[in-house]
C-alpha cells in the first residue's frame, strides 16, 4: 500500500490554510454537510498574524493574509492565543479529528469571550449554524504535516 504523503506547511501562514482549502475542496464529506456561506477571520495576535477565509456554497474560496481590522470586519473571527492554536491543531493531528475537549464548540464555551467573536450577534451565529462544516475544515488539518512557527 502506498504511503500517504502529507503536505508540509507552517502555521500560521496562507500556505497552511491553502493546503486545508485544497483538501476540503476535494472532500465529498464536506459537501454533504450542505452549503456554508461566511467570511471568517482568523486571529493569532501574539504572532501578529491575521487571515480572512471565505466559505462559499460547497467550497472554500479566498484565503488571504490581512491586518487585524480586516480580520474583524468579517461575519465572525476565531481568536486564540498561539499556544491554544498549537494545542488544538496538535490534538487534531494526534486523533485524526478534535477530541471532545478540543472541538470548536468546546473551546468556544471554555473561553470567557468565546472562540468565535463578532461585533454582531446575528453574524456570529453563523459559527453555530455551520459549525460542523467549520469543524470538518479544522479536522482536515490532520492531513497536513504542520510545522509551528514559534
Amino acid at each position: 500500500m502506498a504511503q500517504q504523503v502529507k503536505t508540509k506547511a507552517t502555521f500560521p501562514s496562507v500556505k497552511w490554510f491553502e493546503a486545508v482549502k485544497k483538501i476540503i475542496n476535494n472532500d465529498d464529506g464536506y459537501k454533504r454537510f450542505g452549503t456554508c456561506d461566511a467570511s471568517v477571520g482568523i486571529k493569532v495576535p501574539e504572532a501578529s498574524k491575521y487571515f480572512v477565509i471565505t466559505f462559499e456554497a460547497f467550497e472554500v474560496g479566498d484565503v488571504k493574509e490581512t491586518d487585524e481590522r480586516a480580520a474583524e470586519d468579517t461575519d465572525f473571527w476565531i481568536e486564540q492565543t498561539y499556544d491554544q492554536w498549537q494545542e488544538m491543531i496538535t490534538n487534531i493531528a494526534d486523533n485524526g479529528k478534535a477530541d471532545l475537549g478540543h472541538t470548536l464548540n468546546t473551546l468556544d464555551v471554555e473561553y470567557p469571550d468565546g472562540l468565535a467573536r463578532s461585533n454582531d450577534g446575528y453574524r456570529r451565529d453563523l459559527f453555530y449554524r455551520f459549525n460542523q462544516s467549520f469543524q470538518h475544515f479544522f479536522d482536515a488539518t490532520s492531513q497536513i504535516e504542520t510545522k509551528f512557527a514559534k
Binding site: 464548540n105 471554555e110 455551520f130 459549525n131
Partner: peptide, 29 residues
C-alpha cells in the same frame, strides 16, 4: 445544548448536541 456538548460523555452525545446547536441557531436567525 452547549452544556450538553461540553459535558458529552461519548461521541453519540457530542454529535446530538452538535446537530442541535446548528438547528437552534437557525431558529434564532
Amino acid at each position: 445544548f452547549q452544556i450538553g456538548h461540553y459535558t458529552a460523555h461519548n461521541e453519540a452525545e457530542r454529535k446530538i448536541f452538535s446537530y442541535c446547536i446548528e438547528d437552534v441557531a437557525r431558529q434564532r436567525a
